[in-house]
């Protein structure tokens, strides 16, 4: 039950973050919004990091350098999310975003890219993505 509540709140926060960012960008511009929200998030995460015990910086060396660069995508993610919300509204933005996210994860998994265990494409995943696309079409047409 507690787990479900956390998941529910987590999802709500993701949507609120996107909407807050697109509101803020109207006053200060998109790139400044992306810079400020992520800087404050960074500072807070760093503070939490200093307060918790289990820090293992040294283990960074074990991670392939490529995987350490994922954070830079955040700039484009925040930017695109803001522009999309301004153009097509929140619901359609999130719907299209989730379809792209699940589809790409699905393709990557089924090819076993980035060192993952290859997972076969199965019917439910095709049907699931199909339903999501149909849902968008219902909303829009």
């Amino acid at each position: 039950m507690k787990g479900s509540l956390f998941a529910f709140l987590g999802g709500a926060f993701i949507t609120f973050q996107g909407v807050a960012n697109s509101r803020i960008s109207q006053d200060i511009g998109t790139w400044k919004t992306a810079t400020i929200t992520q800087s404050i998030g960074f500072l807070m995460a760093f503070l939490i990091l200093l307060l918790i015990r289990n820090r293992n910086w040294r283990q960074f060396k074990q991670v392939k350098p490529l995987y350490l660069t994922g954070g830079t995508f955040g700039a484009i993610v925040v930017f695109s999310n803001i522009v999309a919300i301004h153009h097509i509204g929140v619901t359609l933005t999130i719907a299209a975003l989730l379809i792209a996210q699940l589809s790409l994860t699905f393709i990557i998994d089924s090819k076993g890219w980035f060192g993952g265990v290859e997972q076969k494409m199965e019917l439910p995943q095709f049907i699931g993505i199909g339903m999501m696309v149909i849902g968008v079409l219902i909303m829009k047409f």
Partner: peptide
């Protein structure tokens, strides 16, 4: 708008994979 949302979603997918690899170690 749709293209932007698709771009964001694709990058979120990649980012989740990359971050989870970092997460395992640190």
């Amino acid at each position: 708008g749709l293209l932007m949302a698709i771009t964001a979603g694709s990058l979120v997918s990649l980012q989740n994979i990359f971050n989870s690899k970092v997460n395992v170690y640190v």
